[in-house]
Each structure stands twice: as C-alpha cells, then as structure tokens.
Amino acid sequence: MKFFVYILKSELDGTLYIEQTSNLVERIKRHNKGLNRYTKTKIPWKIIYEEECSSRSESMKLEKRLKSWKKRVALLNYIHKKIGM
C-alpha cells in the first residue's frame, strides 16, 4: 500500500498543514468539507506538495521530520529542492 505525506496551504490565511495518509484524494476532500477539527476554520485548502512513501512508517517519519522544521522557509526550501526549482 502506498502512503503520502502532503502539505496544504490555507487560501484563507496562508497557514501550512502537514499530514500523511493512504488516500490522498479523499483526505483533501475531507479537509475542504470541514471534517477535520484543526483545518475546518481555514477552508479552503490547496495542496502545495505531496510525496509518495512506500510504507506507513516511512510516511510517519517524513511527516514528523517536516513538522519539526518550525520555520516556513525550511519547508518551502524542501519543496523547491524536491521538485527541482
């Protein structure tokens, strides 16, 4: 089974949100329907990055690493590096 780590950006205020899932499409729909306690107040959300992982443990490690970077610029640099900008 494939897992994904993704980063969302609130179009309301620019907040970034990081999470992992096995069903990316469904998870994004849930965020934009307001079915997540944290993200429901910042709808609409736009996916700005996704990374496929081969296992849940790999996706959880990546999620934890990305969340540990407190500065937004570190996340954006990571994204640019991964997509070749």
Rank of each mutant, 00 (worst) to 15 (best):
I43T: 04
H31P: 01
C53G: 01
V5F: 00
Y38E: 11
H80P: 01
Y6K: 04
C53P: 02
K40P: 01
N77L: 15
K81Y: 14
K33I: 01
Y49Q: 09
I47H: 02
I18K: 02
C53W: 02
S59Q: 00
K67C: 07
M1T: 10
K64M: 10
I79G: 00
K2L: 15
K61M: 09
S59F: 00
S59K: 01
D13F: 06
K67Q: 10
R27L: 05
H31A: 05
R72Y: 04
K81M: 12
N36H: 14
K40E: 13
S59N: 07
K42P: 00
Y38F: 14
I48V: 12
E63W: 03
F3V: 02
W69C: 02
I83G: 04
L8G: 00
I43C: 07
S57R: 14
K33R: 15
L75D: 03
L16Y: 08
E26R: 14
L66T: 08
T41K: 15
K40H: 09
G14S: 08
E19Y: 07
K33H: 07
L24P: 00
I83E: 10
K71E: 13
M85R: 13
E26K: 15
T21P: 00
K64D: 11
V25N: 13
W69A: 06
S22V: 00
S68Y: 01
N32C: 07
K64N: 09
T41G: 13
I47F: 00
L62N: 01
K82R: 15
E26Q: 12
R37L: 15
Y49T: 05
T39N: 11
T41H: 14
E19T: 10
N23H: 11
E50M: 13
L24R: 06
I83N: 06
V5H: 01
L16D: 06
R30Y: 03
E63I: 05
E52H: 06
T15A: 13
H80C: 15
L12M: 11
I47A: 13
L24K: 05
K29C: 07
R37C: 09
E51V: 11
L66F: 03
L24M: 09
I18M: 09
K70H: 02
N77F: 12
I18H: 02
K42A: 12
Y6A: 09
I28G: 01
L75I: 15
I48H: 03
K82W: 08
K9L: 08
K81Q: 12
I28L: 14
L8I: 05
T15S: 15
R65S: 11
M85I: 12
Y17R: 13
Y78A: 05
D13H: 10
I28M: 10
K9Y: 07
K2M: 14
E50H: 13
K81A: 12
I18Q: 04
V5M: 06
K81P: 00
S10Y: 03
R65T: 11
R27C: 01
T41D: 15
E58L: 05
K40I: 11
S68L: 06
N32R: 11
T21S: 05
H31T: 02
I7Y: 09
I48K: 04
E63D: 08
R37H: 14
G84Y: 10
M60E: 11
V5C: 05
I18P: 02
Y17Q: 10
I43D: 03
K82I: 07
I18F: 05
Q20C: 14
N32K: 07
S59G: 09
